[in-house]
Every structure is written in C-alpha cells, then in structure tokens.
C-alpha cells in the first residue's frame, strides 16, 4: 500500500512537470466547453448533457494519451529495471501508476465543475442527473485509464500504446450501437459488454448498480491483465 502511494505520488508529480497533462486538459476543457455552450440541453433543460455527451467521447480519446507513458516510457528508458528490482510487488507498481493517472484525470474532470456551477448560478438545474453524470464520467474515465495502462504495459512505444488503447475503447463503445442491428439475444449479450450501454442511464440521473459493477469490473480486469503482462515480462 505504502509503495502504491509512493509510486502514485511520483506519477502525479511527473504529470504536473510535463506538458502532456496540460495539453490534454486544455484541449479537453476547450472542447467540452464548446459543446456545453452550443448544446440546446444546456438552455432548455439546464442540464450538463451537452458536456457529458462530448466528454465521454473525448475521454475515450484522451485518457490513453495520459496513460501511454506510464509503462512504455519506463521500458524505453530502462527505468523499468529500477521498479522491477525494487522490493515492490508488480501489483503495487500497476496500482500506483493507475492511481497517479486517476489523480490527474480527477483533477481534469474537477476543472469542468464550472459548467454545473454556471447552471446553478443562472438557473435551477436538477442536481440528480448532474451528480450521476459525473459519477458515470469518472467511472468511464477510470475504465479508460485501466485499458490504457494495460496497453502501455505491452510495448515500449508510447504511440502504439495510445493507439491500441483508443482502438479498444472505441470498439467497446461502439459495439453497443452495432448491437441494435443484431438478432435480439445476441445484441443483448453484446450490449452488456459495451461501454456505451450504461452511460445514458447515468445522464438521466439513474445510478444503476449494474453500470457501476460493469465499469469497475472492466477496470479491474484490465488492471489484472496489466499486472500479468508485467509479470510475464520477467519470464521473456
């Protein structure tokens, strides 16, 4: 646990020291701000759905840019040798990296809180969907981080890590839309595995336990795969 926090702290600091996190956050804020301000939902429903709809897609594209360096860079620079020879469990390394990324992502999403703040100042928004929407967005973001860490553990090339993660995320997201074209039973099963299946509920203010369990399971699964991939690298 102590080691996990040490690694998380180090990763969080190195995000603050490198331009990538600022660039990603900046573009994310500009883009979501744009969609928030042009979305009719903002004015007719005083909801943040305009932000959320854009935020989901942007997270899928941007979270991997935050995670791509976490392990790939260590491999490239050889610093992975420091971590893997320190008296630290492979799971602590992965969890530490995950928590570091989670920290920066949470800060990034925290900065968007001024959208609901604007609504509160100038209107009377329904807080349920806002809270649930943020919960959904965080969960989805953490899932994306876990997938990004997994792909970063597979290669020493950061670009490859990011592109593969974005590929997996988009596939998991859009497979839900494809599901409606399939026979009902099959479509339902596939829909169950889709990242997009649960998000509309959160936007409507419904905190569905199945959705929470789904996001947490996918996150856990990919963190587990990342730990296995790190372990495997010792045997290659």
């Amino acid at each position: 646990m102590r080691n996990t926090i040490t690694i998380a702290g180090k990763e969080f600091k190195s995000y603050l020291a490198s331009p990538m996190a600022y660039i990603v956050t900046g573009i994310f804020l500009i883009a979501t701000g744009f969609f928030f301000s042009i979305s009719p939902a903002t004015y007719t429903e005083t909801s943040i759905n305009g932000f959320l709809q854009a935020g989901v897609i942007l997270l899928l594209l941007f979270a991997p840019l935050l995670t791509m360096r976490l392990l790939a860079e260590e491999r490239k620079l050889g610093t992975i040798e420091l971590l893997l020879t320190a008296p630290v469990r492979d799971s602590e390394i992965i969890l530490g990296k995950f928590l570091g990324g989670l920290g920066i992502l949470t800060v990034m999403l925290g900065l968007t809180l001024y959208y609901p703040l604007l609504l509160i100042i100038f209107g009377d928004p329904d807080m349920g969907p806002i809270g649930a929407g943020y919960l959904g967005l965080l969960l989805l973001g953490y899932t994306a981080l876990a997938i990004g860490i997994f792909t970063s553990s597979l290669t020493s090339n950061q670009i490859v890590a990011a592109v593969v993660a974005i590929g997996i995320l988009l596939a998991l997201y859009f497979v839900g839309f494809a599901a409606s074209f399939l026979p009902e039973a099959l479509g339902e099963v596939i829909g169950y595995f889709s990242l997009s299946n649960y998000f509309p509920d959160f936007m409507r203010g419904i905190v569905d336990t199945r959705g929470i369990i789904y996001y947490l399971s996918i996150t856990a699964l990919f963190l587990f795969l990342a730990i296995r991939s790190l372990e495997n690298s010792r045997w290659s």
């Binding site: 080691n3 490198s18 620079l77 992975i80």
Partner: peptide, 26 residues
C-alpha cells in the same frame, strides 16, 4: 543494483530520485 543502462528518471532532481527509490526500499 547499478544497472548497465544507468536507468534514471531525467525529469526528477537528484534529491527526489533518491528519495523515491529509498522509499520504495522501505
């Protein structure tokens, strides 16, 4: 362990690097 490739985190200062590794070693 002094590894042949001399792995270092170039974005850290000497102090924070040593601090980080000393912590990991308990």
């Amino acid at each position: 362990y002094f590894a042949e490739a001399v792995p270092l985190y170039t974005d850290m200062t000497v102090r924070s690097y040593l601090d980080f590794l000393a912590r990991l070693r308990g």
